[in-house]
């Protein structure tokens, strides 16, 4: 243990002491209050409130309403961060787009037959979580990550080769991601682009009709709240997250020796 370790331990214990004092004296206000804070109360009040039509988003799930309506621009940039990080992964690993002849056998027959039963169920559950995001707990990102688990299960139990033979290649997933992002941006611009030629007020990222703009997304479908753009955003976010994370897993699952052999083959070709 040298001097650096002692200094580190001392500073961390001071951090703990300072945070504990701040919390125990309740310098941040009561940490677990009895009343709802005013901002949170207004979100809860206006999330599904057809009697206050200028602020509502017609979503039963308040968290989804905040994520895609009240703080929609924030979430749009979050999606862009996810997109950019996967693109950076592709750049750093110097993409090997199409691969063939990866001789991986996969696991035993018992695991394969159980995966055939389970993986479609996981994907269906992910899609249900995504498109029910405004009614029950869930949303686009949740559904996407649940479906990615099924994709990684298929990669582990079958092989990457199987996924390629089924038509799931990295370039197609890349295309799917770009289409999903394009659809999100088009949805956010759609009401403004409808309102502009017909000379009606409309905003970018608008969901329901406001006081000074009469346009609104479809809110109700056969007595079921559809929550307008929240439903569409959840669907496209599901596509982006599923294709992006599956893409990252497929890039990282390649074996180092196979990458070496591919690189040698590419040098011979040059």
């Amino acid at each position: 243990m040298n001097r650096k370790d002692i200094a580190l331990a001392l500073s961390l214990s001071l951090l703990v002491l300072a945070l504990s004092l701040t919390i125990s004296l309740e310098g941040l206000g009561p940490i677990v209050p009895r009343e709802l804070r005013p901002l949170g109360a207004s979100f809860v009040q206006n999330s599904y409130n057809p009697w206050n039509a200028s602020l509502t988003s017609l979503s039963l799930n308040v968290v989804t309403a905040i994520v895609w309506d009240y703080r929609g621009l924030d979430t749009l940039y979050e999606t862009l961060v996810l997109f950019a990080s996967i693109a950076a992964t592709l750049v750093v690993l110097r993409g090997y787009s199409e691969l063939s002849g990866l001789g991986i056998k996969g696991l035993s027959d018992v695991s394969k037959s159980v995966t055939v039963v389970i993986a479609p169920l996981i994907v269906v559950y992910g899609i249900a979580t995504a498109i029910h995001g405004h009614l029950t707990p869930g949303g686009g990102f949740q559904g996407g990550t649940i479906a990615v688990v099924a994709a990684t299960l298929i990669i582990a139990v079958f092989s990457l080769e199987y996924l390629y033979r089924r038509g799931v290649s990295t370039s197609r997933l890349m295309l799917l991601r770009i289409l999903g992002l394009l659809a999100i941006i088009l949805t956010s611009l759609s009401l403004a682009s409808i309102g502009m030629p017909s000379n009606v007020n409309a905003y970018i990222l608008q969901n329901m009709a406001k006081d000074d703009s009469a346009l609104s997304m479809p809110g109700v479908l056969f007595d079921t709240p559809l929550a307008g753009s929240i439903f569409l955003y959840n669907l496209f976010e599901f596509i982006i997250v599923f294709s992006g994370l599956t893409f990252a897993a497929m890039m990282l699952v390649l074996r180092e020796s196979e990458l070496e052999s591919i690189k040698e083959a590419a040098e011979v070709y040059e």
Partner: peptide, 16 residues
């Protein structure tokens, strides 16, 4: 039903 399907498969994969 899910546990009934998945637990023996997990044990099988682990042992193998």
């Amino acid at each position: 039903i899910f546990i009934l399907i998945l637990a023996p498969t997990g044990a099988h994969s682990l042992a193998r």
